[in-house]
């Protein structure tokens, strides 16, 4: 049963992945990607990690919806209305990715993987939670900071007003013409 479901999810994932780059319209590409990543979540679920599987699926859904909003915002051919080939250097990319695929699969089959050690705990979610909150606390902290930094950086980058506007063209106006009044010494 597990093998069959794995096979199914795998084939669907690969098909959706290929579809992402095959279809013209951005929207269809987005949903193909969603499909592929949902199958990935399913595979993880099947492999005994229900919590992580569900988390992956949830995140993918959110991302794809956001991506759809961007498609509309930037009018990037949302519905295949303006077919344009966004590809360049296809042969080079194909060659490299085929080479990578070949070397990876070669490695998979050539390396004599060690035997399984230990058995999966009863509750894998508890295992990852205890690990994150225990031994891997450093990873948890780092991830936390990374996420925070990403939020700040993404916001700053995306703002229409740069952080230097208030200082004028030659960057040395004193005091700065700050649209949002207040601040030190003003």
């Amino acid at each position: 049963m597990e093998a069959v479901s794995l096979w199914g999810l795998g084939v669907v994932a690969l098909a959706c992945a290929v579809a992402v780059f095959a279809c013209d319209s951005m929207a269809r590409a987005t949903f193909a990607l969603l499909g592929s990543l949902v199958c990935v979540g399913g595979v993880v679920f099947v492999l005994g990690l229900p919590y992580l599987g569900v988390v992956t699926v949830l995140m993918m859904v959110m991302e794809m919806v956001v991506m759809a909003v961007f498609m509309v915002a930037y009018m990037m051919n949302p519905a295949g209305l303006m077919p344009m080939s966004m590809l360049h250097n296809k042969r080079g990319a194909l060659g490299i990715s085929a080479a990578v695929f070949a070397s990876l699969t070669g490695a998979v089959f050539l390396v004599d993987w060690p035997q399984r050690r230990g058995s999966p705990p009863r509750d894998t979610t508890f295992q990852v939670g205890k690990a994150l909150m225990g031994g891997q606390m450093l990873t948890m902290v780092v991830l936390g900071f990374v996420l925070l930094a990403t939020m700040v950086a993404a916001t700053v980058l995306a703002l229409h007003r740069g952080r230097y506007d208030r200082l004028g063209d030659d960057l040395d106006r004193c005091p700065a013409r700050d649209p949002a009044g207040g601040g030190v010494g003003r």
């Binding site: 360049h88 250097n89 080079g92 990319a93 490299i96 080479a99 990578v100 070397s103």
Partner: peptide, 13 residues
């Protein structure tokens, strides 16, 4: 950008 990716991949391999 894509050429950078290509170089990165070649470098990693």
């Amino acid at each position: 950008l894509h050429q950078y990716y290509a170089q990165a991949v070649v470098g990693f391999t």
